[in-house]
């Protein structure tokens, strides 16, 4: 009942703002303005007469989770694996990767509607942002995440998690730390991939496995790592992650449909990558 009331309140607020905008600016678009295209068009991607935009926007884990929820009923609570806070020496590249993974952990906890875990993650996000020197930018988001989870406003929590990651990435880019910004995205993507492969391994279907068909994103991350400069580029953890990405790419690029065995391998490789900066290493 509480959740319904708060959801209604948020929707009402959005609707009021939208109506107000429409009233002030009557020329604005409405959902009904859309039309079906007249005739299908085809373009030659190998000879495109324009400019290819370099920027890659990495999907947030929630986009994949939304599909998984439509195909199955995963036990999202079992996917939450918030590790103990660990000290890996304050290396900024590892902190950036960890930050991305923590935000992804938050997305998993939102799917589970687990307010307690979201609160813990919100606090950990803030602690980590202090280590990165970005606490002042992150604090409002962290507080909003905790507040929204207490109100069980899951849409708002998702928005704030996305905003947190975006704020950190934009701030890093302003500080000319583009490499760190990319690592935040990579950390989130690897954590998301691990939980998705874990669920698909548990109840395999080709439809679910198709979600892992992301060769463009893997190529983007590989290129990003290979273009890194400075001491981080040769750090053992970064080299291990580069190797992991190459292994993931070999599996995804090598087969039309991913088999159950392929998915198991993707799960194990992404786990190994996460053990370089997020999870504790499993005993051999």
């Amino acid at each position: 009942m509480i959740e319904m009331s708060q959801t209604s309140s948020a929707s009402l607020r959005r609707l009021v703002v939208a109506i107000a905008i429409g009233a002030i600016f009557p020329g604005l678009v409405t959902a009904q303005d859309a039309e079906a295209p007249a005739a299908p068009e085809r373009i030659d991607l190998t000879n495109f007469p324009g400019e290819l935009v370099d920027k890659v926007v990495v999907p947030i884990p929630a986009e994949i989770f939304a599909v998984l929820d439509k195909l199955d009923e995963p036990d999202w609570n079992s996917g939450i694996q918030l590790p103990d806070a660990n000290d890996r020496g304050g290396e900024r590249s590892l902190l950036a990767l960890t930050f991305g993974s923590l935000v992804a952990e938050g997305f998993i906890a939102v799917q589970a509607k687990n307010a307690g875990e979201i609160e813990k993650i919100g606090k950990r996000v803030l602690d980590l942002s202090e280590s990165l020197g970005l606490a002042s930018s992150v604090r409002p988001h962290s507080l909003a995440i905790i507040e929204a989870s207490k109100n069980r406003d899951w849409g708002k929590v998702r928005d704030e998690l996305d905003a947190t990651q975006q704020t950190v990435r934009v701030t890093m880019e302003k500080l000319r730390d583009d490499e760190l910004s990319g690592l935040v995205s990579l950390g989130g993507w690897v954590r998301g991939t691990y939980v998705v492969t874990s669920f698909i391994s548990g109840s395999y279907s080709e439809d679910k496995a198709e979600l892992l068909n992301q060769p463009g994103l893997i190529a983007h991350f590989r290129e990003m790592i290979s273009s890194m400069r400075g001491p981080s580029a040769s750090a053992p953890a970064i080299r291990a992650i580069a190797t992991g990405l190459a292994r993931l790419e070999a599996i995804i690029a090598g087969s039309g449909n991913l088999s159950e065995e392929d998915v198991n391998q993707l799960r194990d490789i992404s786990r190994t990558m996460l053990e370089e900066f997020y999870f504790s290493k499993t005993a051999p």
Binding site: F48, E51, V57, V58, V67, Q214
Partner: peptide
């Protein structure tokens, strides 16, 4: 994505989409 472009010059942006969404 954002930027500046000459009028009429097409821009092409790559993006990963998921079947089911």
């Amino acid at each position: 994505w954002s930027g500046e472009v000459e009028p009429g010059k097409p821009l092409l942006i790559r993006h990963q989409l998921f079947r089911g969404n």
